[in-house]
Protein backbone atom coordinates (compact mmCIF):
# COMPACT_ATOMS: atom_id res chain seq x y z
CA UNK A 1 0.00 0.00 0.00
CA UNK A 2 1.57 3.22 -1.08
CA UNK A 3 -0.03 6.60 -0.84
CA UNK A 4 1.02 10.21 -1.20
CA UNK A 5 0.54 12.66 1.62
CA UNK A 6 1.63 15.46 -0.58
CA UNK A 7 3.53 15.62 -3.78
CA UNK A 8 6.93 14.93 -2.45
CA UNK A 9 6.44 12.36 0.24
CA UNK A 10 5.82 8.74 -0.37
CA UNK A 11 4.42 6.87 2.59
CA UNK A 12 4.87 3.16 2.78
CA UNK A 13 2.63 1.35 5.22
CA UNK A 14 3.60 -2.16 6.34
CA UNK A 15 1.49 -5.08 5.33
CA UNK A 16 -0.51 -6.39 8.26
CA UNK A 17 -1.07 -9.95 7.11
CA UNK A 18 2.08 -11.30 8.66
CA UNK A 19 0.87 -10.17 12.09
CA UNK A 20 -2.29 -12.19 11.95
CA UNK A 21 -2.18 -15.36 14.00
CA UNK A 22 -3.27 -18.33 11.99
CA UNK A 23 -3.09 -21.09 14.60
CA UNK A 24 -4.48 -20.92 18.06
CA UNK A 25 -1.63 -20.59 20.53
CA UNK A 26 -1.68 -23.01 23.44
CA UNK A 27 -2.53 -21.08 26.51
CA UNK A 28 -3.80 -22.45 29.77
CA UNK A 29 -5.85 -19.92 31.60
CA UNK A 30 -4.89 -19.66 35.20
CA UNK A 31 -7.50 -17.39 36.67
CA UNK A 32 -9.94 -14.92 35.20
CA UNK A 33 -7.30 -13.11 33.17
CA UNK A 34 -8.98 -13.95 29.88
CA UNK A 35 -12.28 -12.31 30.68
CA UNK A 36 -10.61 -9.32 32.29
CA UNK A 37 -8.54 -8.79 29.21
CA UNK A 38 -11.62 -9.03 27.00
CA UNK A 39 -13.42 -6.49 29.10
CA UNK A 40 -10.47 -4.13 28.89
CA UNK A 41 -10.38 -4.60 25.15
CA UNK A 42 -14.01 -3.74 24.83
CA UNK A 43 -13.55 -0.68 27.02
CA UNK A 44 -10.51 0.30 24.90
CA UNK A 45 -8.25 0.45 27.90
CA UNK A 46 -4.54 -0.28 27.76
CA UNK A 47 -3.25 -3.18 29.86
CA UNK A 48 0.00 -3.78 31.68
CA UNK A 49 1.08 -7.36 32.36
CA UNK A 50 3.20 -7.55 35.49
CA UNK A 51 5.23 -10.57 36.37
CA UNK A 52 8.57 -12.36 36.29
CA UNK A 53 10.10 -13.36 33.04
CA UNK A 54 8.98 -16.57 31.42
CA UNK A 55 5.72 -16.96 33.27
CA UNK A 56 3.44 -16.78 30.23
CA UNK A 57 2.77 -13.11 29.55
CA UNK A 58 3.73 -13.22 25.91
CA UNK A 59 1.86 -16.41 25.38
CA UNK A 60 -1.17 -14.85 26.98
CA UNK A 61 -1.18 -11.86 24.65
CA UNK A 62 -0.82 -14.15 21.69
CA UNK A 63 -3.73 -16.22 22.84
CA UNK A 64 -5.84 -13.13 23.38
CA UNK A 65 -5.00 -11.68 19.98
CA UNK A 66 -6.09 -14.90 18.37
CA UNK A 67 -9.22 -15.00 20.46
CA UNK A 68 -10.12 -11.42 19.64
CA UNK A 69 -9.25 -11.93 16.01
CA UNK A 70 -6.75 -9.09 15.91
CA UNK A 71 -3.25 -9.02 14.48
CA UNK A 72 -0.50 -8.82 17.12
CA UNK A 73 2.54 -6.65 16.75
CA UNK A 74 5.17 -7.34 19.37
CA UNK A 75 8.08 -5.04 20.11
CA UNK A 76 10.83 -6.23 22.38
CA UNK A 77 12.04 -3.09 24.06
CA UNK A 78 15.73 -2.30 24.65
CA UNK A 79 17.85 0.64 25.62
CA UNK A 80 18.47 1.84 22.11
CA UNK A 81 14.84 1.70 21.07
CA UNK A 82 14.05 5.23 19.96
CA UNK A 83 10.77 6.94 19.25
CA UNK A 84 11.63 6.77 15.56
CA UNK A 85 12.00 3.01 15.79
CA UNK A 86 8.46 2.78 17.07
CA UNK A 87 6.75 5.39 14.95
CA UNK A 88 8.58 5.16 11.67
CA UNK A 89 11.22 6.95 9.59
CA UNK A 90 12.17 8.26 6.20
CA UNK A 91 14.50 6.18 4.14
CA UNK A 92 16.28 7.13 0.94
CA UNK A 93 15.24 4.93 -1.87
CA UNK A 94 16.96 6.03 -5.06
CA UNK A 95 15.96 9.63 -5.65
CA UNK A 96 13.07 9.54 -3.27
CA UNK A 97 12.64 9.70 0.43
CA UNK A 98 10.18 7.05 1.49
CA UNK A 99 8.40 6.99 4.83
CA UNK A 100 8.23 3.62 6.55
CA UNK A 101 5.71 3.05 9.30
CA UNK A 102 7.11 1.77 12.55
CA UNK A 103 5.40 -1.09 14.39
CA UNK A 104 3.35 1.19 16.64
CA UNK A 105 2.06 3.20 13.71
CA UNK A 106 1.30 0.02 11.83
CA UNK A 107 -0.70 -1.28 14.78
CA UNK A 108 -2.62 1.98 15.09
CA UNK A 109 -3.39 2.12 11.40
CA UNK A 110 -4.68 -1.43 11.32
CA UNK A 111 -6.36 -1.63 14.68
CA UNK A 112 -4.00 -4.33 15.87
CA UNK A 113 -2.82 -5.22 19.37
CA UNK A 114 0.57 -3.71 20.04
CA UNK A 115 2.59 -5.50 22.71
CA UNK A 116 5.58 -3.65 24.10
CA UNK A 117 7.50 -6.39 25.89
CA UNK A 118 9.71 -5.39 28.84
CA UNK A 119 8.80 -1.77 28.41
CA UNK A 120 11.14 -0.47 31.15
CA UNK A 121 14.06 -1.45 29.00
CA UNK A 122 13.16 1.30 26.55
CA UNK A 123 14.51 4.84 26.94
CA UNK A 124 12.42 7.27 28.94
CA UNK A 125 11.73 9.56 25.96
CA UNK A 126 10.49 6.57 23.99
CA UNK A 127 8.05 5.61 26.69
CA UNK A 128 6.55 9.09 26.76
CA UNK A 129 5.53 8.59 23.19
CA UNK A 130 2.82 6.13 24.11
CA UNK A 131 1.14 8.44 26.59
CA UNK A 132 -1.40 10.07 24.18
CA UNK A 133 -2.39 6.62 23.00
CA UNK A 134 -3.22 5.49 26.50
CA UNK A 135 -5.70 8.14 27.58
CA UNK A 136 -9.08 8.88 26.16
CA UNK A 137 -7.60 10.77 23.18
CA UNK A 138 -6.18 7.51 21.78
CA UNK A 139 -4.03 9.35 19.27
CA UNK A 140 -0.55 8.85 17.90
CA UNK A 141 1.23 12.00 16.79
CA UNK A 142 3.53 11.27 13.86
CA UNK A 143 5.61 14.43 14.02
CA UNK A 144 7.81 13.79 11.02
CA UNK A 145 4.74 13.53 8.85
CA UNK A 146 2.98 16.29 10.74
CA UNK A 147 -0.10 14.17 11.31
CA UNK A 148 -2.11 12.76 14.22
CA UNK A 149 -3.36 9.23 13.81
CA UNK A 150 -6.56 8.34 15.59
CA UNK A 151 -6.53 4.84 16.91
CA UNK A 152 -9.47 2.79 15.76
CA UNK A 153 -11.61 0.98 18.32
CA UNK A 154 -9.96 -2.34 17.82
CA UNK A 155 -6.46 -1.02 18.50
CA UNK A 156 -5.06 -2.03 21.89
CA UNK A 157 -1.82 -1.28 23.66
CA UNK A 158 -0.36 -3.90 26.00
CA UNK A 159 2.89 -3.57 27.85
CA UNK A 160 4.75 -6.02 30.05
CA UNK A 161 6.80 -5.19 33.04
CA UNK A 162 8.88 -7.27 35.42
CA UNK A 163 8.83 -5.68 38.87
CA UNK A 164 11.35 -8.22 40.14
CA UNK A 165 14.43 -6.28 39.11
CA UNK A 166 14.14 -3.87 41.99
CA UNK A 167 16.51 -1.41 40.51
CA UNK A 168 15.90 2.33 40.63
CA UNK A 169 16.97 2.53 37.03
CA UNK A 170 14.45 0.00 35.89
CA UNK A 171 11.37 1.26 37.58
CA UNK A 172 8.35 2.32 35.62
CA UNK A 173 7.45 5.94 36.28
CA UNK A 174 4.15 6.68 37.95
CA UNK A 175 3.16 8.90 35.04
CA UNK A 176 3.39 5.87 32.82
CA UNK A 177 2.08 3.11 35.01
CA UNK A 178 -1.00 5.03 36.05
CA UNK A 179 -2.25 4.80 32.48
CA UNK A 180 -2.70 1.05 32.47
CA UNK A 181 -4.91 -1.55 33.94
CA UNK A 182 -2.65 -4.07 35.52
CA UNK A 183 -2.83 -7.82 35.36
CA UNK A 184 -0.56 -9.61 37.80
CA UNK A 185 1.13 -12.69 36.48
CA UNK A 186 3.12 -15.24 38.38
CA UNK A 187 4.33 -18.75 37.72
CA UNK A 188 1.22 -20.85 37.20
CA UNK A 189 0.05 -22.97 40.14
CA UNK A 190 1.57 -26.46 40.33
CA UNK A 191 -1.17 -28.39 38.56
CA UNK A 192 -1.49 -25.86 35.75
CA UNK A 193 2.25 -25.63 35.39
CA UNK A 194 2.49 -29.41 35.27
CA UNK A 195 0.05 -29.46 32.37
CA UNK A 196 1.92 -26.70 30.61
CA UNK A 197 5.29 -28.39 31.02
CA UNK A 198 3.87 -31.72 29.89
CA UNK A 199 2.20 -30.16 26.86
CA UNK A 200 4.96 -27.81 25.79
CA UNK A 201 7.87 -30.02 26.71
CA UNK A 202 6.38 -33.23 25.39
CA UNK A 203 7.01 -35.24 28.54
CA UNK A 204 4.86 -37.48 30.69
CA UNK A 205 2.85 -35.99 33.46
CA UNK A 206 5.03 -37.53 36.13
CA UNK A 207 8.19 -36.04 34.66
CA UNK A 208 6.41 -32.73 34.38
CA UNK A 209 5.33 -32.98 38.00
CA UNK A 210 8.89 -33.53 39.13
CA UNK A 211 10.10 -30.58 37.13
CA UNK A 212 7.41 -28.37 38.58
CA UNK A 213 8.34 -29.54 42.05
CA UNK A 214 11.94 -28.65 41.35
CA UNK A 215 10.77 -25.27 40.10
CA UNK A 216 8.81 -24.70 43.27
CA UNK A 217 11.79 -25.54 45.49
CA UNK A 218 14.23 -23.50 43.48
CA UNK A 219 11.88 -20.54 43.61
CA UNK A 220 12.13 -20.77 47.38
CA UNK A 221 15.72 -19.70 46.95
CA UNK A 222 14.83 -16.34 45.52
CA UNK A 223 16.47 -13.73 47.65
CA UNK A 224 19.30 -16.05 48.67
CA UNK A 225 21.48 -14.90 45.85
CA UNK A 226 18.92 -15.80 43.23
CA UNK A 227 17.48 -12.71 41.60
CA UNK A 228 14.53 -14.56 40.33
CA UNK A 229 13.10 -18.04 40.53
CA UNK A 230 13.28 -20.45 37.68
CA UNK A 231 10.77 -19.58 34.94
CA UNK A 232 8.12 -21.77 33.45
CA UNK A 233 9.95 -21.30 30.20
CA UNK A 234 13.09 -22.93 31.65
CA UNK A 235 11.05 -25.80 33.01
CA UNK A 236 9.66 -26.28 29.55
CA UNK A 237 13.19 -26.25 28.15
CA UNK A 238 14.26 -28.85 30.66
CA UNK A 239 11.29 -30.97 29.67
CA UNK A 240 12.18 -30.62 26.02
CA UNK A 241 15.71 -31.76 26.73
CA UNK A 242 14.43 -34.75 28.61
CA UNK A 243 11.96 -35.53 25.88
CA UNK A 244 14.78 -35.63 23.39
CA UNK A 245 16.73 -38.10 25.45
CA UNK A 246 18.98 -36.07 27.73
CA UNK A 247 19.49 -37.58 31.16
CA UNK A 248 17.07 -35.74 33.53
CA UNK A 249 19.67 -34.57 36.07
CA UNK A 250 21.81 -33.22 33.27
CA UNK A 251 18.82 -31.59 31.64
CA UNK A 252 18.07 -29.76 34.89
CA UNK A 253 21.67 -28.76 35.18
CA UNK A 254 21.76 -27.12 31.78
CA UNK A 255 18.21 -25.81 31.71
CA UNK A 256 17.77 -24.78 35.32
CA UNK A 257 20.81 -24.59 37.61
CA UNK A 258 23.25 -23.11 35.19
CA UNK A 259 21.04 -20.52 33.41
CA UNK A 260 19.72 -18.88 36.54
CA UNK A 261 22.92 -18.35 38.47
CA UNK A 262 26.68 -18.24 38.24
CA UNK A 263 27.11 -18.79 41.95
CA UNK A 264 28.64 -22.22 42.41
CA UNK A 265 27.12 -22.81 45.82
CA UNK A 266 23.70 -21.99 44.52
CA UNK A 267 24.19 -24.26 41.55
CA UNK A 268 25.23 -27.06 43.85
CA UNK A 269 22.27 -26.38 46.13
CA UNK A 270 19.94 -26.58 43.16
CA UNK A 271 21.59 -29.77 42.05
CA UNK A 272 20.97 -31.32 45.48
CA UNK A 273 17.35 -30.31 45.24
CA UNK A 274 17.16 -31.82 41.79
CA UNK A 275 18.63 -35.11 42.96
CA UNK A 276 16.31 -35.11 45.89
CA UNK A 277 13.36 -34.99 43.59
CA UNK A 278 14.42 -37.10 40.64
Amino acid sequence: MTESLNDKTIVKAQPIEKYVLTREPYYLSVRDEVSIFETAYKARLPVMLKGPTGCGKTRFVEAMAYRLGRPLITVACHEDLSATDLVGRFLLEGEETVWHDGPLTTAVRHGAICYLDEVVEARKDTIVLIHPLTDDRRILPVEKLGILLNAPNDFMLVISYNPGYQSVLKDLKQSTRQRFLSLEFDYPPATAETNIVAHEGGVSESVARDLVKIGEKVRNLKGHGLEEGVSTRLLVYAAQMIASGIEPVTACEIAIASPITDDLDLQRGIREIVTTII
Binding site: K217, V218, N220, D265, L266, E272, I273
Partner: peptide
Amino acid sequence: SHLLRLYVEGLTG
Protein backbone atom coordinates in the same frame (compact mmCIF):
# COMPACT_ATOMS: atom_id res chain seq x y z
CA SER B 1 26.62 -25.49 55.86
CA HIS B 2 25.94 -22.77 53.32
CA LEU B 3 25.02 -25.35 50.75
CA LEU B 4 22.86 -27.23 53.22
CA ARG B 5 21.14 -24.04 54.18
CA LEU B 6 20.28 -23.33 50.57
CA TYR B 7 19.12 -26.90 50.27
CA VAL B 8 16.74 -26.82 53.21
CA GLU B 9 15.55 -23.34 52.41
CA GLY B 10 14.79 -24.53 48.94
CA LEU B 11 12.94 -27.55 50.22
CA THR B 12 10.98 -25.75 52.90
CA GLY B 13 10.73 -22.23 51.57
